[in-house]
Design a protein around this nucleic acid. Structure first.
Lengths: 256, 256
DNA sequence: ACCATTTCATTCAAAATCAATCATAAGTAC
DNA sequence: GTACTTATGATTGATTTTGAATGAAATGGT
């Protein structure tokens, strides 16, 4: 493979997945570690990506939520694991709701189903979706400064125009008693409505969210299926008594 | 095989595959390495391809930037001039509509007015606005693949929820008889509605758009005020008879 | 704070590719 | 036919790219 091709491919992969491990690139490109490393060096020199320990990431773009998250590569990998697993729940001809948030954003490059229609309140989600050739409707409404998500009364009206086969929702807290919670009341209301309009709801959360309680309740534990990377042992029975839980498997192959 | 044939074939192959290895060409053309190398040299000299180590690639980087029209530096400067001038039409406490498009996008950093509320159908506009601390509502609806603008029936419903002090609209064609025109019917409908809902409408266009007619009419010439960088002499009277025209001054200071 | 592990930068040799040169063959003008 | 030009193919040494190996640095877990 030509150097040019490799580098183009690296940029393509990055624009889809936002971060990538060096070892993943080594496998995907069938090149040696040294070579990939050199490519990353050059691309960084041309300001086309940012190198991070263990791999590379996009130059900061439409940045996301609390900075505490997605800070370490490890968290990103967990997210990606969850995202990929969730993306397999999307079937041909589905109409789905994709909540704003980083984990749902990671789902997009993994969606393989055909003729999917997506509704989302995340502008960057929408851009990624259409870039991947997926039909996409955005909700209108107020744009939040912190998360760049669309919220508010208009969004709630807008979402009523749709019905979903599946809703994919992010959560900041999962607790046996308090159910699913999130910090912003506006977002909570929208997530709840999305859930109500969907036949099936999946809540995506990495393992750090268990036994956490955030400010606003979205809905009860039993009303959705959880997709996570790991279920901490101490919560295990409490959670599984009330809700279905999928643990995202570790992948055999890093990617296609 | 004749040299001319070979070179045409190289270009053909390249336009299909975007990059090609020298050895592949040697095989495909049944020519020696030296010959292919010489062909590549000549074609590069004629700026028909780019030579890279191991082969050749197309000149254009076909990765991702098909978004908006690629423009010369001159056009960028013109746009910015128009954008800055337009941004000064925004006053404190205004509620404005900002059409999707590159020129209106350039306005955002120049908006100095306080307590402005903006409605837009451009997701990237919305993100820039909130990043600059400007309150922003997005229209909901279908996201167009080519321009990433929000359009369609839902957007038309959404926009009816608002009234604007000022609407800033982009146009692809300005003609004395046909008025303001744009290529996409969906976008034209939205622009027209935005105009109808606004007390004042400014149409932003660089000088290349005059005497151009695009597919869909937005509204008549006299219904809006034009902001441009230059008014070609041949159109001058035709246009100024019907519409107000602002020519964006050349700035004293290059930029902020 | 420590250790085990992973990742990084650097170096080196092998392989691939390149530019330059020369020789051959074919065509052209005289 | 001879002399000249042109296109081609082969050969050479120089340059670039690549992959592996080394020790240094960073990271994660305890």
């Amino acid at each position: 493979m030509l150097a040019e091709e490799r580098q183009q491919m690296i940029l393509k992969i990055l624009s889809d997945t936002r971060v990538v491990k060096l070892q993943e690139l080594v496998q995907m490109l069938s090149a040696s570690e040294s070579t990939v490393r050199r490519d990353l060096q050059e691309l960084e020199g041309r300001h086309l990506l940012r190198r991070i320990h263990g791999g590379a990431s996009l130059l900061k773009k439409l940045n996301e939520e609390p900075d505490m998250e997605s800070k370490t590569l490890r968290h990103v990998q967990q997210k990606k694991l969850v995202a990929r697993f969730a993306s397999e729940k999307v079937k041909d001809n589905d109409c789905i709701y994709l909540d704003a948030g980083t984990t749902t954003l990671e789902m997009i490059p993994f969606i393989k189903a055909k003729s999917v229609t997506v509704v989302t309140n995340g502008p960057s989600h929408a851009e990624h979706l259409v870039r991947n050739g997926i039909l996409c409707y955005m909700l209108g409404g107020l744009m939040k400064g912190t998360t760049k998500a669309i919220v508010g009364n208009i969004a709630l009206q807008n979402i009523n125009l749709f019905r979903f086969d599946t809703a994919f929702i992010g959560a900041n807290g999962i607790d046996a008693l308090m159910g699913y919670t999130t910090p912003d009341p506006e977002e909570a209301a929208l997530k709840r409505r999305a859930h109500e309009l969907a036949s099936t709801t999946y809540v995506l959360a990495d393992s750090s969210k268990f036994a956490e309680i955030s400010f606003c309740k979205m809905f009860d534990l039993g009303e959705a299926t959880i997709i996570t990377d790991e279920l901490p042992e101490r919560c295990q029975s409490l959670i599984t008594d009330k809700a279905n839980v999928y643990i995202a498997d570790h992948p055999l192959n890093p990617m296609v």
